[in-house]
Nucleic acid binder design. Sequence first.
DNA 1: GGGTGTCTATAACATAAGTTATGAATAACT
DNA 2: AGTTATTCATAACTTATGTTATAGACACCC
Lengths: 251, 251
Amino acid sequence: MTLLDTVVMRGLGLHGALSPEDKALLLGLELNPKRVSAGEVLWQEAADVDLFCVVKEGWAYSYRNLGNGSMQILKVYLPGDIIGMRDFGFSRRLAGVAMINDGVVSPFTYQQLFDLFGHSPALASCLIATTVRQQAMLTERLVYLGRYAAHERLAHFLYELYLRLQRIGAIEDNGFAMPLSQEQIGDALGLSAVHVSRTFSMLRDEGLVQRDRQHVALPDPDALARLVEFNDTYIDESLPPAFQAFQKLER
Amino acid sequence: MTLLDTVVMRGLGLHGALSPEDKALLLGLELNPKRVSAGEVLWQEAADVDLFCVVKEGWAYSYRNLGNGSMQILKVYLPGDIIGMRDFGFSRRLAGVAMINDGVVSPFTYQQLFDLFGHSPALASCLIATTVRQQAMLTERLVYLGRYAAHERLAHFLYELYLRLQRIGAIEDNGFAMPLSQEQIGDALGLSAVHVSRTFSMLRDEGLVQRDRQHVALPDPDALARLVEFNDTYIDESLPPAFQAFQKLER
DNA sequence: GGGTGTCTATAACATAAGTTATGAATAACT
DNA sequence: AGTTATTCATAACTTATGTTATAGACACCC
């Protein structure tokens, strides 16, 4: 899973018409793949910001450990995502990042990013757009944490994962591997592990979600989407016309 | 209140050494000031993304109206802030924006932003860093919504406003004008208006917050900061060394 | 292969926050 | 100035979610 597969192929980027230099720049971010194992911490909160990562295999999450002993998971990263852009422009990490299961990541440096920015404004604006989209997902979770009940939060979380996994071809028969424990899901949704379990049972009884250990199936994704009134604006990946014009101009 | 006052003077940007062209580009975003009145909607959710705004006077907020009838306020904008960058790279607005009180805003276009990006990568990276910082504030609220109780959320919210207002010289005797109603504060913190009132009473009884209509005073800001274990990493405005090196290089 | 730990389901109970209601204080309007 | 509409404080009651506890299922390890 390379950035070319995600950033570009998804309609972001230049609609299949990346210049060779742009392709090289993008691939240059993925030259140092590194095997990482489940639970491994890629960096801690408040660590120096030195590099970013492309997730090539496996899932990761960013988190904050809080003074009251609890943890808030901010975001789950899937293959093809870039980790760490949240910290762009900061000296220290705002959140830690850890692997959920075994995987492969490709670290790249600030320097590489700046090189890319300097050489291809079009590609830079693409990467920024990707980052903004990731933030939009966070905003969507904020909305759910603020104003929706547990079953809606969980349904939304699962449906969002479903859409993101679909995009990278990781959905089979409406089901997917789910390496997060209920405790971790609770940490993402601001719920206790017990209540996550209760809520899963509830969604199961309503026929909306089937779960067996590390496997989740959504028998009727559309029904789930209706339940959470899924707003897909933020997951839509087309760029606005002004943006495309700019990118053409730059080449 | 211009961007030069905020983006640049705050240590973001080139440490007082902006080139004349960069200054002109920045000021170019503020050529069309426009008077707006309390409650005025700058744009609705899902509207086309055509422009962004610098807030010159007054407060604004971005919001989402939800299917269940409630509203989630995402962010409060103060003078010197840029509104709308959240939507950069999207065709449609992810959130509406409305004025809280009377004020003045300066709209600028996608085109202007791209011009700036094309002409000054250094300034572009500054604007991006500013946007990322705004997003970091959102993330901080996400953490509070997920894992802290009402009194901590409110204390944190007030203290963050306090710090931001201090930066633009809007704090007097540890107090500031607070045009938000308790209902709106509730919409920002994911609480009912009634509970916001209760929580204000509680903080008042503990001597942490004084409030009189549209005026809030924090008699002991440090005590408040301790209560919320305020993490000021995300409000710190210095740029990392790599960033500064890049900016020097670009000039 | 039996012990050990982690994950999950469910129950019983505790509590923070939501809801509804009411009156007082303030602001807005004519 | 009097009327009306917001906003706020507080109380009484309800409910969703947290907490603690327990037991079964599965994974891991020597």
